[in-house]
């Protein structure tokens, strides 16, 4: 299963090489299978792909709690909620103290679906970081 997923991610990467930069896919060590996708030119916003029960999750970490200007925290959260539904294919989320943007796919999703999601996610991540910069330190 893991090898199949990695293969699909690589295929998606090849499809996106023209639009985004080159893709570097690697499995990160740990008990849960997580693949790290690094896109040339956007190394600061790597995408992590993991299979969680019945879905594939593509996660891009944006900022942490400590990045947020305390006086603007509520405004930031509201802005994220307001924006959430308008963002194509991705949604905001939070794991622990890390804020993120992610896309969820069915386990059977093919390389094309994955490519579409990853392209949207990477673009959304850059846009989100830029739009939310005013709420951050």
């Amino acid at each position: 299963m893991d090898a199949v997923l990695q293969q699909r991610i690589s295929e998606a990467g090849q499809r996106l090489a023209g639009q985004l930069g080159a893709f570097d896919v690697a499995r990160i060590p740990g008990e849960v299978v997580v693949f790290k996708v690094e896109i040339t030119g956007r190394e600061e916003l790597p995408i992590f792909i993991t299979q969680a029960d019945s879905q594939i999750l593509c996660i891009c970490y944006l900022w942490t709690e400590s990045d947020i200007a305390p006086s603007r925290r509520t405004a930031l959260l509201e802005a994220m909620l307001d924006l959430n539904i308008a963002i194509p294919l991705s949604s905001f989320g939070r794991i622990g103290d890390k804020y993120l943007i992610y896309g969820a796919l069915a386990c059977e999703a093919g390389a094309d679906d994955l490519a579409q999601d990853l392209l949207a996610l990477s673009d959304n991540a850059v846009d989100a970081l830029e739009a939310m910069a005013e709420y951050l330190h």
């Binding site: 997580v34 993991t50 019945s54 890390k98």
Partner: peptide, 20 residues
């Protein structure tokens, strides 16, 4: 079960990611 497992899996993945 799916919600619980997904939450757990995501937190574990984040743990691995943070460590790496």
């Amino acid at each position: 079960l799916a919600v619980a497992k997904t939450t757990e899996s995501v937190y574990r993945a984040t743990e691995s990611i943070s460590q790496s």
